[in-house]
């Protein structure tokens, strides 16, 4: 177990190093200048030079990469040249919003997906099951930005039950939650589909196993048994999906954050790419990559605990 974790940590470090090298090289090739992008005609040559020096763009890629890592090890990702704010602070400001959005959507997915899956498994091959199967696939396949746009059409133009734009007024928890509901629902849809299908499959598998038939004949109450089994069996795939979901956090939130104008990791990196704000792009990418790798590791470990049949280190993802 320990050596497994060590191995994962080493490969995590390698992934991060490679990512930063990749990004640093890219920054040297990508056309576009941060000073000009933001200032347009106001960017004087002196100003451009100053911003380049502050961003460290005048150094060689090698110097940039080593410098970045030395600082990163101290928890310092650099400073945003334009506002003078530490990049770690910028990230910490928006990270919770993305995390809350993801968590809320996964919670919604659990609340909706598991009951749907149980229903399908207990009514296999009925019309209800068929409809749910199609619904699940549609949920999984329809792109999140299409759902987001449609919801924007519905809730902002016609049906004004939920506010959908922005985070809500700050310091107002209730307002924050109200603003969270629709974006979280949009993000949750595909996970609802996944969960419903996973729960159905794993549950049907158990139901077909013979020992249940045996126990049934011994007269144990049908329903109690079913639900105990159902929940227990739903747990493992759920945890796996939750792990993947948390890890893929950013992939989902980019569009939802843009369409609903929410601050978050997605909007932060998009804006940084557009403005050519290289230090911010690097810092945010590093955090995203770290987050992804650790979420996966965590999901793996929890999975092993839950299901002794899986041996750690042998799962290949």
């Amino acid at each position: 177990m320990f050596s497994y974790i060590l191995k994962r940590v080493v490969s995590t470090a390698l992934v991060c190093i490679l990512l930063i090298i990749f990004l640093s090289l890219l920054i040297h090739i990508v056309p576009g200048d941060p000073a000009k992008t933001i200032l347009g005609p106001r960017a004087t040559p002196e100003l451009i030079e100053k911003i380049h020096t502050e961003m460290g763009l005048d150094k060689t890629p090698f110097q940039q990469i080593t410098g970045f890592f030395l600082n990163a090890l101290h928890g310092d990702l650099g400073t945003d040249v334009f506002t003078g704010r530490p990049i770690t602070e910028m990230i910490m400001d928006v990270f919770p919003h993305s995390l809350i959005l993801t968590t809320a959507s996964l919670l919604l997915a659990v609340l909706l997906g598991i009951p749907l899956g149980i229903f399908s498994a207990t009514h296999p091959n009925t019309i209800g099951d068929r409809i749910l199967a199609f619904l699940s696939i549609s949920f999984i396949t329809i792109p999140s930005y299409v759902v987001a746009l449609i919801f924007l059409l519905i809730f902002s133009a016609h049906l004004r039950i939920f506010p959908v734009i922005g985070l809500g007024s700050s310091g107002n928890v209730g307002d924050y939650i109200m603003h969270l509901i629709i974006p979280a629902l949009v993000l949750s849809l595909s996970w609802v589909g996944y969960l419903a299908r996973l729960v159905r499959t794993s549950l049907l598998e158990v139901l077909n196993e013979t020992y249940i038939t045996a126990e049934r004949s011994m007269g144990i109450k049908n329903r109690t048994l079913l639900f105990r089994l159902a929940l227990k069996n739903a747990l493992i795939p759920t945890v796996a999906v939750l792990g993947v979901g948390l890890g893929k956090m950013l992939a989902g939130t980019v569009f939802v954050e843009i369409i609903f104008s929410r601050p978050g990791m997605g909007t932060l990196i998009m804006k940084a790419i557009q403005n050519r704000n290289y230090p911010v792009v690097q810092g945010v990418s590093l955090i995203i990559a770290l987050w992804f790798v650790f979420a996966n590791l965590l999901a793996d470990i929890i999975n092993t605990r839950l299901d002794p049949r899986i041996q750690i280190g042998k799962t290949e993802r």
Partner: peptide, 10 residues
């Protein structure tokens, strides 16, 4: 791993 650690859209 490196390629997959960033969301494909980004």
């Amino acid at each position: 791993d490196t390629i997959q650690s960033l969301p494909s859209i980004v």
